[in-house]
Structure formats: C-alpha cells, structure tokens
C-alpha cells in the first residue's frame, strides 16, 4: 500500500497545484479587468478636464465653437463594465466600491459640464437631455429598480447618444449626498431627474419616450432615412 498511498499524495498535490493555478489565473484576469476600468476612468477624467478647459477658454468667445463632442463617449461603456464587475466580485468588494465612487464622481462632473454648457449656450445640436437615475440594490428598498434598469439599458442600446447617469442612492459619497440634497430627491425609488423635474416610480419604455420627445424625433428621422434607402434601391 506504500506505493499506492504515495499516488494519493501525488494526486492531492497535483490537484492542489491546478487549483492554485486556477485561483492565480482568475485573480490575474480579475485584476486586469479592474485595471481596464481604472484606465477608462482616467481617460474620462482627462476628457472632462479637457472639455472644461476648452469651455473655460471659449467662455469669452462664441458658443458656436462648442460642438456636440464635448461630453465623454466612454461613460456608458464604463457603466456597463463596472456593473458586470460588481456582479462578479460582489457589491461589497472594496475595489469595486472605490471604482463605483469614482465613477459616480465622474458622472456628476460630466453632468455639471453639460449643465454649464446648457446655461451658457443652450443645448448643443445633437445632444439629448440626460437623465439622472437613482436606484438601490438593497433588498426591499426598490422592487421596480430592476425593471427600470431594463428600460434605461434598452434606451441606451437603441439610442447610443442618450446619456443616463445612474447613481446608487446608498453609495457613501459626499458629492452624491449634496446632489441628492440640491434636488431634494427622496428615497422613493426608482427616481428619475429629467430637465430639472423629478419623477418617482417605474416608467415604462413608452412613458420614457413621451418624457423625451427628442427620441421620437430620432425615430422619425431614422424612418425617413430608411424610406430614402428603400426608394433608392427601387
């Protein structure tokens, strides 16, 4: 049984080695993901800073020089990736929490920049009114948040130019608490802030499109485009 016993030990060591390798690989890729999120966050921070600087420089000049590209294009992608990471690592993960706080700050900065441009020059052409969405992941706090999430995700998919700033109401972040105070947002979730108006409770896809008439305009334009393409083919 001595040689037989040795085989059990060998098998144990090999299995343990495979497990340790798997843990190492999984952590390695997980860390790579976090780094990618950090990189996107840095890029967005630079984008915002660049736009703010550009805006400061142009303040004395004409609004015509501000195009529709002043807002960062990567916020949506960042949101999706962060939410995927949160699902996998858990919402209690410290690194996830830090990234989420930073993401929330970037969203607030991006929104403030939008507000600044809007006040100074009005809404630039091709830029849709953004939505600020408050949700909660805590059990029993928001039964409709999952459904509202589906609606907003769908709007983002159908209209990539549409911006949704989503905030975890319970996130421990001073700037977020200030934003909540400024707009007087109550913990009656889901809550949506659109064009300085607050909407509480679930809003369906159709209701959202009614609240955002620009989306209907985009639909009409797309329909017209499709019609043109068909007639050209004929």
């Amino acid at each position: 049984m001595t040689t037989g016993f040795k085989k059990y030990i060998y098998a144990f060591f090999i299995t343990t080695a495979i497990f340790i390798t798997a843990i190492f690989l999984s952590n390695y890729f997980s860390q790579k993901r976090l780094n990618e999120i950090k990189n996107i966050e840095s890029r967005i921070a630079i984008d915002i800073l660049a736009s703010e600087t550009q805006f400061a420089l142009l303040e004395e000049l004409s609004c015509g020089d501000i195009g529709n590209t002043f807002l960062s294009k990567e916020l949506n992608e960042l949101g999706e990736k962060l939410s995927y990471t949160e699902e996998n690592r858990g919402s209690d993960d410290l690194e996830v929490l830090n990234l989420k706080r930073y993401y929330s700050l970037l969203q607030i900065k991006d929104f403030l920049l939008y507000q600044k441009v809007k006040q100074r020059c009005g809404v630039p052409k091709g830029v849709l009114s953004p939505i600020i969405y408050f949700y909660s992941n805590e059990d029993g706090e928001c039964d409709d948040c999952e459904k509202e999430g589906f609606v907003l995700t769908r709007l983002r998919e159908e209209y990539p130019e549409f911006r949704v700033y989503s905030f975890d109401y319970n996130l421990d972040l001073g700037a977020l608490a200030t934003l909540i105070n400024i707009y007087g947002i109550e913990k009656d979730l889901p809550a949506i802030l659109l064009n300085d108006r607050l909407y509480y409770g679930f809003r369906s896809l159709d209701e959202m499109k009614t609240l955002l008439p620009e989306l209907k305009k985009i639909d009409a334009a797309r329909l017209k485009e499709a019609g043109k393409a068909t007639s050209t083919k004929q």
Binding site: I23, F29, R33, E157, L205
Partner: peptide, 25 residues
C-alpha cells in the same frame, strides 16, 4: 415582459469573458 425583445449587436469584448476559478477548473 418589461421592454420586449431586442436583438442588439453581439458584444464580443474580451472584458465580458468568464474567467472565474470554476471555469479554469
């Protein structure tokens, strides 16, 4: 039920590939 069926573009970003311990084992 909430938003109907929608077939968007397939997301092939490597970021979303499963790299859990369970997968490697």
């Amino acid at each position: 039920y909430t938003v109907g069926l929608y077939f968007g573009d397939l997301n092939l970003d490597l970021f979303y590939f499963d790299t859990s311990i369970i997968l490697f084992i």
